[in-house]
Design a binder for these strands. Structure first.
Lengths: 231, 231
DNA sequence: TGATGGGTGATTGCATACAATATGCGGCCA
DNA sequence: TGGCCGCATATTGTATGCAATCACCCATCA
């Protein structure tokens, strides 16, 4: 392992986002170090980075905890995400190349294929969806938007993980993806922005409802594994 | 010094924002450790945090550098800032308490007083202006907006530091502040948002122009010290 | 019985030693 | 003379040891 600190960062972050570490859970450095297979020093560096990203919170002399977001904070986060990704979509409508747009169209098709497939693979769907969203951000050609969203986006993902699978919701999501591609093909920024906003605000409602559904999402996730990021 | 890592973080960050460390400059850990008066360990932790915030960049085995932003990146950053703070102002228009609005009015008055004062104190003006902007963000009652802007805002500030003092620009800025207070008093979200956007996009132009003015801003700052953040 | 204080184990915070890696320079060879 | 290889030095990356701090438990006392 060439760079222990990087490995530690990746492992801990994945652990938080996958739900392995529950919200509010104390993260002990020695334990993480053993788990990752490095010493405490790179673990501490990883935790500092995660702290700056908001995924964990430090209390002096009392270590790090997985930051637990309230429903209010999640709502706020989705509002911002709707605005930021909506802005990205608007820019992308005028700046994306034809190649980028076809790639997005392709991703949308593949996502629907995965959904219809017999061996429904939620991890794959999550991955494709993530790629779809990131491609739009990149196509916006705003270098800072990328960095800004990166620190915000993945957190709600952790909650999607616990969300139940809902066929209608998934259909609506696919529908949004298709419409986004159309808007980009038409180079219609306002349209693209509006669709993206709908897309994310719809996800917001789903996530918040699923939060209310079970008070402790960390233990109530379905046996089949992760659910896709439905946005 | 109770917490070395916190001290190191504050000192290094201040050094970058004040221009003491030039853009692109290599930051050697041992040197910083001596400067701060701690060992390399807390320095490294501080650098990791600053890396996550985008103020420094790591290259494996080659240490940290003060991240140098291009004109394009600055433009992108100001676009985002206009959007985010504009959104904050819109929310604040409906959510700010009367007390908060009077506080803002007071800050605006004090800024103008400082400007007119014989002993023109740019540091004080910068401080007041920062407080003005933060108060609006807080009044938006979006907990995540605060965290998001915090990672974005201070970087342009470093460039303001190098900016030359321009009386007309300052007048326009004061004028924006007054208008913002009026919009908030009227609880007119659209108005507040529009003014805030103008305010920040005007600053964008000023900063970009001043960047063109001297190719190496790090060495061309005026002898009197910092200039205010003119937005 | 409940509160308080001290002791103890666990954990974090920091410093330092050592290993891994890059950079720069000088010599060697074509 | 010019380019390339290898060594020396500087710097980063990681591990470990020790001090500081905290949480918990239990004894003591009102």
């Amino acid at each position: 392992m060439a760079r222990a600190a990087e490995t530690a960062y990746a492992v801990i972050r994945a652990g938080i986002l996958s739900g392995e570490f529950e919200r509010g859970e104390r993260l002990r450095e020695e334990e993480l170090a053993v788990k990752v297979g490095v010493s405490r020093t790179p673990v501490r560096e990883a935790l500092r980075r995660l702290d700056a990203e908001g995924l964990v919170q430090f209390q002096p002399n009392r270590g790090a905890r997985v930051s637990a977001r309230s429903a209010q904070e999640l709502e706020d986060l989705y509002d911002l995400r709707a605005m930021l990704e909506g802005y990205g979509a608007r820019l992308a409508a005028s700046r994306a190349s034809d190649a980028e747009i076809s790639e997005l169209a392709d991703l949308a098709v593949r996502m629907e294929a995965v959904t219809k497939s017999a061996s429904f693979d939620v991890d794959e769907l999550t991955r494709l969806n993530g790629e779809f969203h990131w491609s739009i951000v990149r196509a916006s050609r705003n270098s800072q938007l990328d960095a800004l969203i990166r620190g915000v986006i993945d957190v709600p993902l952790a909650h999607h993980t616990f969300e139940r699978y809902e066929p209608e919701r998934l259909q609506a999501s696919h529908s949004h993806h298709r419409e986004l591609v159309s808007a980009l093909q038409a180079h219609d920024g306002q349209w693209a922005e509006a669709v993206m906003r709908s897309h994310i605000l719809a996800a917001r409602t789903t996530v918040l409802n699923s939060l209310q559904g079970h008070s402790d999402p960390g233990t109530a996730r379905v046996a089949s594994g992760k659910d896709p990021q439905a946005s």
